[in-house]
Design a protein around this nucleic acid. Structure first.
Lengths: 245, 245
DNA sequence: GCCTTTTTTGACGAAGCGTCGAAAATGAGC
DNA sequence: GCTCATTTTCGACGCTTCGTCAAAAAAGGC
């Protein structure tokens, strides 16, 4: 690994600048407001130069999605350090997911956009595999926790595929709930009497895990207290930032 | 209500033709392959005429989404007629959801596309409210089943909001699982050992409902047999069509 | 058959993506 | 410091799509 030349550093810096500008545009004006011409204008480079970094608009988004996945993963990893039973640590990951969606809605939106086939088709192979390895981070954390629980005898026993099934359940529930509750034109309040989707989601996590018999069950443990500890000990800053809205 | 004039009938027919052509395009070439110019070409009307029916491309999609919601609702309603306990009927709705996603993937894709804010922003008020009332159909069926269960003492007792919470749980789990398992770049098989997402989803439904204590619990009832009956008695044609792939 | 109203048409302007030859900057050799 | 080949940057251009609107065509009343 030779040290970078001045030119190489310039290029790397410019790439960061482009992404920074692109992210700002994404936040301010949404996906349709993000255009290659506008990126060129805002960075004061020409369009041709932008296209030397990214082969198409989709690749810019994939790069942003990579950053998003890294932020999410780092939250998940912090959550997994919570000292306690595996199921408590899983609850902490649930909190991390919630915080990610609420504190970084733009990152969540980017993840969503990159989840479509038409997007994936256009992202060059190299960038795509980088994105996928970024996305694997979170999944590994969650899967690791489920396996820990099995190893410690808290969850199932005989069938090792239970870990994957539980993770699929939590993942689909979280993903679906986040989409539904941030989706326009869905009125959970009047139709279904749900004022705080997150509270219900947490209750549903517990119901699912109880259904799998993941110990300690909700009836024999004070998970409300666990949540309070997670807020205070793992994510104090994030909780404060969330309150400052 | 005066009877329709010849002209009015012509216009109504043309609208159906446009939607038919648009759906075909959506199926054959995907969302990006669906263009207003192409609709004009294929219907042999001019673009201006198309724009007299639909104010923008998004409105065409909203109209398609309306049809999709109606198909989904009719499957759900058939499922709810299954003779049995409320939880069995809920299982039938789960099967209906699965059949909808598998038999009509293009309808599912259209629903997804119309679930985005950028789409919703552009759909005219009138069409949007029509779409939303179409979408409410399914939710009413599911919510009705949960309320039936409560009325019969199978689910919860004191707190009436439990019905909404269970429905939110099932809905988010189904939505998330369907998205994840049809999503590109997600390898459930190698990462999590899941070959058949639908089997796992069904197991997760049961775990969630057991967690809520919705009777009869999975341990005290043969839901595999219930599924077989649903296949045979409610959706024989659909199951056959699914097998013919 | 004439004139008004409604309907249809497609050329047009605007906006965005991605390209490519020309122009500018770089730097190696002398 | 100058020259010339190579690398880098630039932005005008071609193409596609959306949505509009004035003009042409059709319909219909008298």
């Amino acid at each position: 690994m030779a040290p970078l030349t001045r030119k190489q550093r310039e290029i790397a810096d410019r790439e960061l600048l482009i992404l920074e500008v692109a992210r700002g545009m994404m936040v301010e004006r949404g996906y349709l407001g993000l255009t290659m011409d506008r990126i060129a204008g805002a960075t004061e480079y020409s369009k041709g130069t932008i296209y030397q970094h990214f082969s198409c608009k989709e690749e810019v988004l994939a790069a942003l999605a990579c950053e998003s996945a890294q932020i999410r993963t780092s939250l998940f990893e912090r959550a997994a350090t919570f000292p306690g039973r595996a199921r408590e640590r899983m609850a902490a990951v649930g909190v991390a997911d919630f915080l990610f969606v609420r504190l970084y809605p733009q990152h969540f939106a980017i993840e969503r956009i990159c989840d479509t086939a038409s997007m994936r088709d256009k992202i060059p192979e190299k960038r795509l595999s980088r994105l996928e390895s970024c996305e694997d981070g979170c999944k590994s954390v969650v899967l690791g926790l489920a396996r820990d629980a099995m190893a410690q005898g808290d969850l199932g026993a005989e069938d090792p595929s239970v870990a994957g099934q539980v993770v699929f359940g939590l993942w689909s529930m979280a993903y679906g709930a986040n989409l539904i509750s941030t989706s326009p034109g869905v009125d959970l309040e009047t139709k279904m009497g749900i004022a705080e989707p997150w509270d219900v989601l947490f209750r549903n996590y517990n119901a699912l895990l109880d259904g799998y018999g993941w110990k300690p069950l909700a009836g024999e443990w004070d998970y409300a207290a666990t949540l309070e500890r997670i807020y205070a000990e793992v994510f104090p800053d994030e909780i404060r930032r969330l309150a400052d809205r």
